[in-house]
Design a protein around this nucleic acid. Sequence first.
RNA 1: GCCGAGGUGGCGAAAUUGGUAGACGCACCUGCCUUAGGAGCAGGCCCCGCAAGGGAUGGAGGUUCGAGUCCUCUCCUCGGCACCA
Length: 944
Amino acid sequence: MGKTGYDHKALEKAAREKWAERNLYVTDLTDESKEPYYLLFEFPYPSGDLHIGHWFAFGVTDIFARLKRMQGKNVLFPIGFDAFGLPAENAAIKFGKDPKEWTVANMERMTEQLKSIGLSVDWSKRIASCEPKYYHWTQWLFQKFYEQGLAERRNAPVKWCPKDQTVLANEQVVNGACERCGTEVEEKNLTQWFLKITQYAERLLADLEPLPWLEEIKEAQRQWIGKSEGAKLWFTIEGSEEAIEVFTTRPDTLYGATYVVLAPEHPLVSALPATNRAEVDAYVAQTKLKTERERQENKDKTGVRLEGITAVNPVTKELIPVFAADYVLATYGTGAVMAVPAHDERDFAFAKKYDLPIRYVVAPKMIDTGNPPQDGKRVVKRYSILAVVHDPKTKKYLSLKWKEQGWTTFITGGIDADEDVVEAAKREILEETGYKNLKFIRRLGGPVWAEFFAAHKDENRIAINSPLLFELENDERDPVAQAELDQHEAHWLDLKEIAAEKMRHAEIEQILSHLDGEDGAYTGDGMLINSEAFDGRENREALWDIVTAADGEKTTNYRIRDWLVSRQRYWGCPIPVVYDPEGKVHLVPAEHLPWLLPEDVDFKPTGEAPLASSKELKERVTRIFGEGWTPEYDTLDTFVDSSWYYTRYLAADDDTQFSNFSLMKRWLPVQRYSGGSEHTTMHLLYARFFHKALYDLALVPTPEPFHERFNRAIILGPDGNKMSKSKGNVINPDDIVEKYGADAVRMYLAFIGPYNEAGHYPWSLDGVPAMRRFLERVTKLVPNLKEGSATEAERKALAKATVKVADDSERFKFNTAVSGLMVCLNELEASKSCSKEAFVEFVKLLAPFAPHLTEQLWEAVGQAGSVHEALWPAADPSLLTEDTVTVVVQVAGKKRGEVMLAPTASEEEALKAAQSIPTVAELLAQGTPKRVVYVSGKILNIVP
RNA sequence: GCCGAGGUGGCGAAAUUGGUAGACGCACCUGCCUUAGGAGCAGGCCCCGCAAGGGAUGGAGGUUCGAGUCCUCUCCUCGGCACCA
């Protein structure tokens, strides 16, 4: 440390003592003299040591809390601990420590470290979710959910982590693996507690819209909720009372449904009397062996037909086969789908593999722009073919050159009654070119709905045209009729020539893309064909009419599942229910809350809930409820604890209620909530659901818990990688604070980049020393301070900084706020000595960023009280406007110089001033310019 | 594949409504001071060019007196969802 360095350790200690003495950061929740401002960060998990991410999360937010206080707000800036959870229990298993002791010790250690940041949080309202006085109310709220029918116990397939020996919520399964330990997840059927978040799906979605959150946060929640609108349709089983209920978003394609698929787990798979029962059961057993991950990664379609079972297409009344296949998910929709291979990629792949019929019912509409339909002409619709004949020997394609018209086409023609498309095509090829030995290869996509005006017949034509690919087996030819030869002659063209020929087919792109590509389903929109009475209507327009014709129902499906909250773990909130001898659920009566977590448990992972090993818990239940009554052994997901904690800060020590309604009316919703993006579809969604449920119970006054949500960026190691012990790139804040002081660390974190962005900022080893240097420069002004009032230049610099720091901080752009302070300091240093008045103002601006040092400087220049009790300066608007401004002079948009002008200067004055620039003077001497653009105070552009 | 956010010097990044591209800082370079420097001070620092000048915000077009900013197409990076019917 340099000789001139200030003693950060001494002054930080003194500053904190002073704040404590003056009780600066205890918020009086009932104070109505000031406007309330609830600033919240996600309460931390007490993992043990404070890392740089904590400094970033809390230290930078603290800047804003301090600024808001100076701006006269009554700021609630609380802190607590999200103290239940797996790591405590894992430590217990690993080191034989008591999870409670481990957690309490960590909380104490972290509290000390947190105080070293200089946080202005209100420690008097500290909460910890593992304390009985907190979880008392987690339990009470759970019971309210139960009474309301929002908490339900049911048997369900659940995700099970074999390593952690616990059930996981959907949100905790990432790519088929446990979010915590990466172990592949298994499926189990267990009786579990669920909170019915699905009942709130629509409101969670709708109420998202007006929130001033970043689009990426809202969109992630929307996708997670996954609303999709469609219809339920019923396919009856031939010769049975049963019907298969399917969900589809494309009922418009119902006429193309050529089979039905059930998820392997679907109850009808085992219930229906398939004649190949053994084969079906074997398939179902085989899919059960697959892990979630295998199912997701392997997209090859497998399945088994239920032999002897046929379903009835509700509109065509056709009898169609029924399959069980694991590409259909049991947990989405009805667990059964109608398969439309022509218009769904997955069904198409399955149909190809099992050779099932593919029927096109939607044809893309293409209008021949060179020859469009004309008004008032009759319309003739016909089915036709378009044949592409390929000669594998020459790799060329057969085309017709039309003599009179001069255009080139493939072979086209109508389909006669009762004629097959392939037959029709072969007939046309023979008639027009004489080639007769042809092999049908495949369709080149589905039929196209082409509209054009047929001049020779004076009518509008609709051609429902099927493009087909043939291969020439040999070049044997029959003679071609003279009438045909008079019209056109056959040519063989290669692919390049085809592209160059600009073939007269609206569907040429479709043909070309299918020639070299794979065949596939058409998933776009178009005109209905092969759909009986609906033929010729647009698919989207006719969609609901088809649902009606099929006796279906409009319905909405959501991707989101109910929230599974049971955990077979020890260190969590006990679920406050017991079971009577018949196994019926009873809530633990209010007088027995908090329903305490027993302490005599065995932590060894056995696959059974640890609470089952507690003698005390069993005895407690017997004592209170009687013989034969049994406890609930599961605990609650910790996300339940954190779904309501922000209301608890308003009544942290109140043992009579979970929060305080009149205070909530004053303080909710949280004005600004800052946290990590990893919680977007977890905590943030759960808390919104919880809050809405409480709102419906009239327990909270607002429908949403958080007004603004800011997801903060992530600090990377100096090498640009995520910090991790194995990479050896972890920055330990303690060492840096020891060397450079807390203020320098806070300021560097503020300066590192915009806070409210999904950015990843590599930690620069030189960043904190740079901030220390800046702070030392501030201290160096002190010995040379000049008594008396500030100069004009100083007052202008301060006014600018005052506005910039406040505005940028409001948007959580602390990086540019700090830069504003630096610019201001540069100006204050410009003269030999800064005035004391200016310095005092500057110290106020710096106070939120460097709270310790500014406290000392405040005293050093003889100010009374604490700088943190000072009010944020009001900037005099007259100081913010300049007397002269720089106007850039351009010639034809190129900068040629600049002139200093009064902001009010006229165009004439600007032009006159611009004469001082030689190139401009020269130009103006040549005569009047074509155009002059003058934006006062900014730019003068002369266009010659 | 669908959706969202981005792409600006060696690095982190600035740039209210279209109006001096690169503020501020880091790193680096030169000089001064110093017994010393991981200190301080002065200056330099996008590219080409001696200069005048020219080029440059992922790429290609367009609108405009003027485009990092608006429009069209395209490439790349990150994030979310994903066999969701």
